[in-house]
Design a protein around this nucleic acid. Structure first.
Length: 371
RNA sequence: GCGGCUCUGGUGAAGUGGUUAACACGUCGGAUUGUGGCUCCGAUAUGCGUGGGUUCGAUUCCCACGAGUCGCC
C-alpha cells in the first residue's frame, strides 16, 4: 500500500492520536490539517508560500478539475503535482460532495450521478469508476471514494438507502483503483447512531488505505456531530488514518482529535480570510477571531497576533493596514489573512500533537476552552 | 441687475396633503465547515434649505429669504 498510517503515541486519557502518514510525496505528522486547493491552487497563495507556512498535504477537487481543465489535460501536463508545482501531498475529493452542493440539477442512479456543470450547464456524469480513474490521472497521493454526502436534516429511510448505496459505491471505488493507487473509504449514516455504526463497520471491513468520516458538519447541532463522530471512530481500525471531512474550526478540530481523528480539511480558514477574518487564539481575542474590517482596528498598529510567526505578523503588517487593504479590495489583504490563518492552524495542530505526546491533551483542551 | 430651474441621510437619488420617507452605494455589525476572491443577513434620515402662511393635518400647496445652477443685459 502506497499510503500507510503509523501510530506513534496515543494520549493516555483521551482517544487522541499522534502519528505519521506515509505517502509517495513524503511523511506527514498527524493530526494534520489540509488546506483546501480546489482548483489546483490554494487561493491567493503560491506553492512556495504554502510550503513555508508548513502545509504538508493539500486537498484538490475532482469535480472542479474534471470539468476544467479536465483530467486528460492534467495527465498530459504530467499530473497534478507537476501541473500546479506542488511536490508534497495531494488528496483529492471524489466529487461526490460538489455534485450535490454545486449543481442545481442532478439525477442519482445506482450507476452514478448525472448533473449539470455549474460552469456552463453541460450535462456530465460521475460514477465511482470515473471518479477513481480521474483521480488516478491526477496522480493524487490519496483518492477518495465516490459517495453521497447526505444533507441535514434527512429522514431515516433516505439516510439508510443513501448510505447503502454509498457502500456499494465504496466497493466499486475500491475495485476501480489502479495498482498502487491509495483510496480512502467514506463512512456516512447521517445523524442516526445505528446507521453510523453500520457504515463505520462496513467501511472498516474493506481494504481501503484509510477511512474518512463524511456527512458531518452539514448544519447539525454540534452535540449531534460529536456524538456521530464518536460512533463513527469507535469501529474504525487503529492502523489506518481517520479523516474527518470538511472540518473545521478550532473547536471542532479539538473535538475531532480527542475522538481519534488524524486528518482534517476545511475551507474555513481560507474562505473567511477572503472575507476579512483573522483566526486568533482565545488569548488574543475571546472570540478566537478578528473581523478585521471592524472600526475598532482603524488605528490599531499592532500585528494580528504578537506571538505569531506567519509572514504577515512576523513582518509586522498591522491590523490597521490589513483592514485598509481589505476595505479597499486589495489582493494582498486577502493573501496576508490567508497566510496568517493557515499558519495559525499549522501551529494549532502542532501544539495538539505535542500535547498528545506529553499525555496532556485534556489540559490543552481545557486551556483552549478557557476552563 | 433681471429671468428660469433646483434644494430630501455620508453620497446618488425616488416619493406623497394623512399611521413606519422607496431603492442603490457607503458606513456599522453579523454569517461563512469534503471553496464561486462569490454571496447572504441585520442596522443606518424623529426628518425632506430657512422662516412664515393655508389646512383638522404639510416634506408635499402659497409667500418671503438663503444657497446652487443656467440664460440674458
Amino acid at each position: 500500500m502506497s499510503v500507510t498510517y503509523e501510530l506513534i503515541h496515543k494520549d493516555k486519557f483521551t482517544g487522541a492520536r499522534a502519528g505519521i502518514l506515509h505517502t509517495p510525496h513524503g511523511d506527514f505528522l498527524t493530526p494534520i490539517f489540509m488546506p483546501v486547493g480546489t482548483q489546483a491552487t490554494v487561493k491567493t497563495l503560491s506553492p512556495d508560500e504554502l510550503e513555508d507556512l508548513g502545509a504538508g498535504i493539500i486537498l484538490g477537487n475532482t469535480y472542479h478539475l474534471f470539468l476544467r481543465p479536465t483530467a486528460d489535460l492534467i495527465q498530459r501536463a504530467g499530473g497534478l503535482h507537476k501541473f500546479m508545482h506542488w511536490n508534497k501531498g495531494i488528496l483529492t475529493d471524489s466529487g461526490g460532495f460538489q455534485v450535490f452542493s454545486l449543481s442545481t440539477i442532478r439525477k442519482i442512479t445506482e450507476e452514478g450521478v448525472m448533473f449539470n456543470s455549474h460552469i456552463d450547464g453541460a450535462k456530465k456524469f460521475l460514477s465511482p469508476e470515473i471518479s477513481i480513474q480521474t483521480q488516478f490521472k491526477f496522480g493524487s497521493d490519496i483518492s477518495m471514494a465516490f459517495d453521497e454526502c447526505i444533507p441535514y436534516p434527512a429522514d431515516y429511510n433516505y439516510t439508510k438507502n443513501s448510505t447503502a448505496r454509498t457502500h456499494r459505491w465504496a466497493e466499486r471505488s475500491l475495485n476501480a483503483a489502479a495498482a498502487g493507487q491509495a483510496v480512502f473509504g467514506i463512512c456516512q449514516g447521517g445523524m442516526y447512531e445505528d446507521l453510523r455504526e453500520e457504515s463505520s463497520k462496513f467501511i472498516a471491513s474493506l481494504d481501503f488505505a484509510g477511512c474518512a468520516i463524511g456527512g458531518l458538519s452539514v448544519g447539525e447541532p454540534k452535540e449531534i456531530m460529536y456524538k456521530m463522530l464518536e460512533v463513527s471512530t469507535k469501529f474504525l481500525p487503529e492502523n489506518k488514518a481517520r479523516y474527518l471531512m470538511g472540518v473545521g474550526t478550532p473547536d471542532h478540530l479539538i473535538e475531532g482529535v480527542m475522538r481519534g481523528v488524524d486528518m482534517f480539511d476545511c475551507v474555513f480558514p481560507t474562505r473567511v480570510a477572503r472575507n476579512g477574518m483573522a483566526m486568533v487564539s482565545p488569548k488574543t481575542s475571546a472570540r478566537g477571531r478578528l473581523v478585521i474590517k471592524n472600526a475598532e482596528f482603524t488605528e490599531d498598529f499592532t500585528p494580528l497576533e504578537s506571538d505569531c510567526d506567519c509572514y504577515a505578523c512576523k513582518k509586522n503588517f498591522t491590523r490597521a493596514y490589513i483592514r485598509h487593504l481589505v476595505r479597499a479590495d486589495e489582493i494582498i489583504g486577502l493573501r496576508l489573512l490567508t497566510l496568517h490563518n493557515l499558519r495559525y492552524l499549522q501551529r494549532f495542530m502542532a501544539a495538539m500533537r505535542q500535547a498528545i505526546l506529553d499525555d496532556r491533551f485534556n489540559e490543552f483542551r481545557a486551556d483552549f476552552f478557557g476552563a
